[in-house]
Amino acid sequence: MPRFEGKSVIVTGAGSGIGRAAARLFAEEGASVLLCDVTEGAEAAAEEIKAAGGKAVGRQMDAGAEEDVRGAIEAALGEFGGLDVFFANAGISGGRDSILEASPDLWAEVLRVNLVGPAMAIKHAAPVMKERGGGAIVCTASVAGINSGAGSAHYSASKAGVMSLVKTAAQQLTGAKIRVNAVCPGIIETGMTKPVFDFAREAGKLDRVGRLNPLQRYGVADEIARVALFLASDEASYLNGQSIAVDGGLSASHPVTRQAYGQVAV
């Protein structure tokens, strides 16, 4: 039986990248999926899923606005009769301003979407899931929240906050049978990282993207989406309050000069 047969799932940031890949995989595994995005991409992605025989509804929403989060959950209840999984994936990079350049407004907006958004997802999804007998919440953090060097100060701080959030939420939901975990992507080709990849392609240096991790490559959205599905599934039934890095091994070490496999370090 498909892992999510009869389950109701919300995915934010589902208009592109990791969210879109996850929504497709949830649907392939039998779930009824509410795809949410601040753009109209969610509706287009939902139509693709339905054309492939899946159950999906698209909805335009601001993942960092509490009323929009509440509205998405109400929509899932109305469309599917309940809620079993919430993948709080939506996020923004906020650009690459240094800590000396970033304005208070920029900090506030990045934290609103990247951290307050998942917090609101947990706040409003948990009571609904508890009534249903339990559920799973997965948030998208980042390797930028583990160590410096993978993003701006505001982005990194927001993702470190997500990692702390899932720990705190898992504890505060004790007895509710709701698991809360996070996935921490490394460098992945998505809509958010498109400028980086476009620049690398134009410069003929695409092979250098992701070269600092032991696998010496960047990742694709599907690789992150599959880990998110695992965290949401019964296969991860004893996994709670954790943040799982999916980064080719980048965060497994301090920065070093690595030699290729088989070569002897000088």
Score class of each variant (00 low, 15 high):
Met192Ile: 15
Ile92Val: 15
Glu74Arg: 13
Thr12Lys: 02
Thr39Met: 06
Gly133Leu: 08
Ser233Cys: 07
Gly161His: 04
Ser98Arg: 12
Ile187Gln: 05
Tyr261Ala: 12
Gly64Met: 08
Val246Gly: 05
Ala260Glu: 12
Ile18Phe: 06
Leu212Asn: 10
Gly210Ala: 06
Ile137Trp: 02
Lys159Tyr: 01
Ile122Glu: 00
Ser8Asp: 06
Phe26Ser: 09
Met61Asn: 08
Arg179Asn: 01
Gly133His: 05
Glu189Lys: 13
Thr168Phe: 11
Leu173Lys: 05
Ile99Glu: 13
Val162Gln: 06
Arg96Trp: 11
Ile137Glu: 01
Arg132Tyr: 02
Ile224Arg: 01
Gln172Ser: 13
Thr39Ile: 00
Leu83Thr: 00
Leu100Thr: 14
Gly133Gln: 04
Ala260Ile: 02
Gln242Phe: 05
Met61Trp: 04
Ala44Val: 09
Val220Trp: 15
Leu229Asn: 12
Val38Cys: 06
Leu231Lys: 07
Arg211Ile: 14
Gly71Trp: 07
Ala51Arg: 11
Leu239Ser: 12
Leu83Tyr: 00
Lys194Pro: 09
Asp247Gly: 03
Gly248Leu: 01
Gly145Lys: 14
Leu173Arg: 06
Ala108Trp: 06
Ala182Leu: 04
Asp198Val: 07
Thr140Lys: 06
Ser237Gly: 14
Asn181Gly: 01
Phe26Met: 07
Ile122Val: 11
Lys123Ser: 10
Glu28Lys: 09
Ile146Trp: 05
Tyr238Gly: 08
Val209Thr: 03
Thr174Val: 14
Gly41Ile: 13
Ala221Lys: 03
Met163His: 07
Pro127Ser: 11
Val162Lys: 02
Thr193Lys: 04
Trp107Pro: 07
Met1His: 10
Ser253Gly: 10
Met1Thr: 15
Ala245Leu: 04
Ser98Cys: 03
His254Met: 15
Lys177Ala: 11
Lys177Phe: 09
Ala90Leu: 09
Asn181Val: 07
Leu106Asn: 14
Gly175Lys: 14
Cys36Ser: 13
Ser253Thr: 15
Ser8Ile: 10
Asp68Ala: 10
Val57Met: 03
Ala56Cys: 02
Ala221His: 06
Ser233Pro: 03
Phe26Thr: 13
Val166Gly: 11
Gly71Tyr: 02
Cys184Pro: 02
Gly58Gln: 06
Arg208Ala: 11
Ala72Glu: 10
Arg208Glu: 15
Ala153Cys: 14
Asn181Phe: 01
Thr257Cys: 11
Asn181Trp: 00
Gly13Ser: 12
Ser156Glu: 07
Gly19Phe: 10
Pro214Phe: 00
Ala265Phe: 13
Arg211Tyr: 06
Arg112Asp: 13
Val33Glu: 08
Ala252Pro: 04
His254Tyr: 15
Ala153Ser: 15
Ala252Tyr: 09
Ala14Ile: 10
Ala136Gly: 05
Ala119Trp: 04
Ala200His: 01
Asp198Arg: 02
Arg217Asn: 13
Lys7Phe: 01
Thr193Ala: 15
Gly133Ser: 01
Ala21Tyr: 08
Gly53Thr: 10
Thr12Tyr: 03
